[in-house]
Design a protein around this nucleic acid. Structure first.
Lengths: 215, 215, 215, 215
DNA sequence: CTATAACCGAGACGGTACGTCGCGTCTTCGG
DNA sequence: CCGAAGACGCGACGTACCGTCTCGGTTATAG
């Protein structure tokens, strides 16, 4: 589960004084839920702060006390979805990759995920703070899947160990970009389904490449 | 050069009558140029129709006579950029792929391309007409690169011929998603540069995979 | 019948050259009729030149070739209504005045007359050319009724002859302002009907005053 | 002083809840002042909501929160001018009437009054709500002058008492229409000045008529 | 048990951009 | 040269959200 990064959970602001009425925790969760619901119902561009506040049964002020703008709110609201991804051990590298590809595709099939993800990424091209938030809240968290899968494959003897830690990191980044990029492109740009057959083809291509490189 | 798909160039609307003052062609090109300039200067979210009109020296109504909204306008304005991509014969499949990867990355480094592309893709998740427009104006046009590269590699003997035309099409789609997806993800989501080294690593991975699959 | 003062009937423009296609006379009458119809249907503020052109089956250009703007067009369209007023000899000054009061009130009950009259008068407070046009096309034309009525009353011996021509003119102006003003105010501002009873009361007041003054 | 009839002062809407930030009273007065200033500077037809807002140092939305359209705003802005009219006791009916005629003419000489008054009256011919607003905000308030002047004249013995209250009301309405109508017509339609001489002539005519009728 | 302080809802505020409408002008083709 | 058709630059419209700012009122801890 993600520890949501709201203003009030930041160390420097949470303890600005122990007196006064504390912030409502129900409000936090209600707002994030309302944001996801609004994304499903309206999409990114039609989503308004006022509407989210209404859906959450909360005043607009309460939103702005916690998030500085729409983008930050949406990142937090969507980030939690990506933590559902897991990497159960299916016994082989191929099966593991195929599993995560299908899981990721299923996630991107949810409207609140796909519309929000692309929109905040688009926005982040002009907003460094937002890009950093996306990386820490979403991207970097999922690299664990790559690292875990590689470690497992190495333990099985499917992939060789890499001695140079920098090379290992670069390799992991590359794999991550290939997997995430291909699935996102397939789903959002090509707008074709990621079914069993496509996942199988893609996985074969990737794992074959990895095997050839490693040898 | 792209044949821009404005309202008035659509076959079904261009002949609403040959009478009356014809639409200004200079306005068309001025608007598209102004749109690209505004994207560079302001980015997607700060771009306004009024500002584009001012930059183009044109009335706002003239924009709305041609494009129904910001998204369609931006797609048309940006589409032409993607037609600059070429596939010069560098003598080998690896060199060809690496070349197109670097070209594509260079394109995505241009601010008007990256911010606009992601934004319209995000919007297209809720707008079928927009998605179709993106596909026809941008995506499908670039698949030619994959087809051309494969044909060349087959002629060189680097890749086997595929008899089943459907399988060949699926394969081309897959390669397209992998290349485009990985580069986009690297540049926009991971926000890391696509330099010579990364291009080399990625190309090796991909071509190795293709070679293993074909055999 | 009013000789409409359009651009093309002005001596300096009608003969700008005897060559070329002559202006359509049907267009003139169709435009004025369409203007009155639009006034009835839409009122002054909702009336648009484009709508008038459409109703008249004419291009907007054709309107502007004849009238410089909305106000001038409306004045001409409405002026003709006021020429319907007549002063049949009813045998006495009181009966004559009462007759003209009722006639004028009936005219003001027509929506195209009342809404247009007030609107152009309002506009004329800032537009001298328009005020002059209103005076010549509408106001001055109706003063004939006062002059005719007075002459008749003098012939009957109901009113004394006035020797000083300037005093006579002032007196006629005053009577005109009182009659027209009272009826207009009753109908448009007070928004009460001008019925037989009111016309009788008003006429008595006015004629009594005239009689007292004259003696 | 006029109790301005804005949306928020209407009994049925002022209590839509005592919560939330209350409306700014300074904004109200600033808007009405700005409206009068804009009427003087621009006249009715050139007056725009945006300009009034700018002059008042207020957002356009603040105007629309209080008045649904230009007409209602202008009625409220102008209504207060008419409350300046008074009827000081000048010792005789003739002097009183002459005084009020000159006062009224002076008021109509002010550009914000004359252009606005005619325009809203013109508009009111198609808008019942507006006509009612004009009557309650402007017209009915001034009938007090007639009633007061008559009472004074009766006290002096210049006019007989009227036993039938309905006849008295009708008579007051008639006098009001005659005075207001004649002055308005003289100033706005005939566009001639209401000077001492005209006021004297008109007053003599009216008072003579009243005297003849009463006897 | 009260004072203080931060919270909460509601909603008005100054702004910015929207997409539309009408104006009066212009440019084309055809009669 | 006129007339229809309709695109053009312009400017105002009335609306929708933005993010901020009062309000009155609530809920905690501190004294």
């Amino acid at each position: 589960m993600v520890a949501v990064m709201c203003k009030h959970t930041r160390p420097e602001t949470v303890r600005t004084g122990r007196t006064g009425r504390p912030r409502s925790v129900e409000a936090d969760t209600a707002i994030l839920e309302a944001t996801r619901a609004a994304l499903v119902a309206l999409g990114w561009s039609k989503l308004t702060m006022g509407d989210v506040a209404t859906r959450a049964g909360v005043a607009k002020t309460t939103l702005y006390r916690r998030w500085t703008n729409k983008n930050e709110l949406v990142v937090d609201a969507v980030a939690v979805l990506f933590d559902e991804l897991e990497l159960p051990d299916r016994g082989s590298l191929i099966a593991d990759v195929e599993g995560v590809v299908l899981q990721f595709a299923a996630l991107l099939a949810r409207p609140e995920a796909k519309t929000a993800l692309m929109a905040v990424v688009a926005e982040s091209t002009r907003d460094d703070a937002l890009r950093i938030r996306i990386r820490s809240a979403i991207v970097d968290r999922q690299k664990r899947l790559v690292l875990e899968g590689r470690a497992r494959a190495q333990a099985r003897g499917e992939l060789p160990y890499e001695d140079d830690p920098e090379a290992a990191a670069h390799s992991a980044d590359l794999i991550f970009d290939v997997i995430a990029g291909a699935v996102v492109h397939r789903v959002l740009v090509s707008a074709e389904p990621v079914d069993q057959a496509w996942a199988r083809s893609f996985t074969l291509l990737l794992v074959s490449g990895l095997a050839s490189l490693g040898s």
